[in-house]
């Protein structure tokens, strides 16, 4: 294991972590403010990626596509909130899980109907296509670095939005006492739609940027969704800070585990068995991490009191 490989994987872990943060922050906001568990969050991720790939293909400009994808995801989110989700706030979690599971089926099959089963391709934009030389002799793709940078900017932006603006104040108030801010004259249903659209937009942005690294296909949101669940469970559901810490933790543990574990097992097993067992354990590592954290902190690292 060379230092440069380790450094590269560290960056990859950070990049996965930033993506997970974009997904998890929306999920955790929606849960914190509306008390809603939303399985269909991965569908907004997919929507963002498909619209970006489609618009980029038509206009030839990635940035127009990215903007369109993010806005489309936010718009679809607002629409879904208006049509379905707002009927679920008063229901129990079981109903929410089922209704949003139904939404996943509708979104996934609907997208397959519209675009077909074969994946769409989305290329990294020209201006970010190269790679840069970093310390330890690492050549790292510029696009992935840009994703990390974007994640940092969005984390700061979200922090400012929530702690410094009027909308943020209302969101925080909504987390503390829903009935009270309604009674104080805040239009609560518009606030809910806004928060939901914000979360959907962030998920769409994540899907759009990842779409350029992987193929854009139906069902692409589901593995990310489940990872995002692990993130918010680790971080404490409803806590943005928890989502950030959880996302980085999961991103790093998952990426580094896949690289390091097979080598670790090689120390005391024969090579082929070690890589098999190592890979199997590595794929379970974040769930093991989650289990351990929950044994000691049943409500996550940054538990939110309701």
């Amino acid at each position: 294991m060379t230092l440069s490989l380790l450094f590269e994987q560290l960056l990859n872990g950070l990049q996965l972590g930033t993506m997970l943060f974009l997904m998890a922050s929306g999920l955790t906001l929606v849960f914190g403010v509306m008390g809603l568990i939303n399985l269909a969050h991965g569908s907004f991720y997919m929507t963002g990626a498909f619209v970006t790939a489609w618009v980029t293909g038509t206009t030839g400009n990635f940035w127009v596509g990215l903007l369109a994808g993010t806005l489309a995801a936010a718009a679809v989110g607002a629409l879904v909130e208006f049509a379905v989700i707002r009927r679920l706030y008063q229901r129990d979690h079981l109903d929410q899980v089922l209704a949003t599971f139904a939404l996943i089926l509708i979104f996934s099959e609907g997208t397959r109907w519209l675009y077909g089963s074969s994946p769409l391709w989305l290329n990294v934009p020209q201006s970010l296509a190269g790679s840069v030389r970093l310390p330890f002799g690492v050549e790292y793709p510029l696009y992935r670095l840009a994703i990390i940078g974007m994640g940092v900017l969005i984390a700061i932006g979200l922090y400012l939005l929530i702690s410094r603006t009027r909308l943020g104040m209302r969101i925080r108030a909504g987390e503390n006492d829903r009935e009270m801010i309604g009674a104080l004259g805040v239009d609560i249903s518009t606030l809910y739609t806004l928060v939901f659209a914000l979360g959907a937009g962030l998920a769409g942005l994540a899907g759009a940027t990842i779409g350029a690294l992987q193929s854009v296909q139906v069902g692409m949101g589901e593995p990310v969704l489940i990872l995002a669940f692990v993130v918010i469970v680790i971080g404490g559901i409803g806590s943005i800070k928890g989502a950030l810490v959880g996302a980085l933790l999961v991103g790093l543990v998952d990426t580094l585990g896949r690289v390091l574990l097979p080598d670790l097992f090689k120390l005391f097993m024969e090579a082929s068995a070690a890589s098999g067992v190592g890979a199997a354990i590595a794929s379970m590592l974040i769930y093991i991490l989650m289990a351990i954290i929950l044994i000691f902190k049943p409500n996550g690292l940054f538990a939110v009191k309701h």
Partner: peptide, 29 residues
């Protein structure tokens, strides 16, 4: 492990444990 939690946590933890088994089955050749 899961019954120490309730509500949404329970839903997500049971989901996550099932995923753990799923990935284990995928990566066990």
């Amino acid at each position: 492990l899961s019954l120490g939690t309730s509500g949404v946590y329970f839903i997500m933890i049971t989901l996550a444990f099932a995923q753990m088994i799923y990935y284990f089955a995928i990566s066990w050749p």
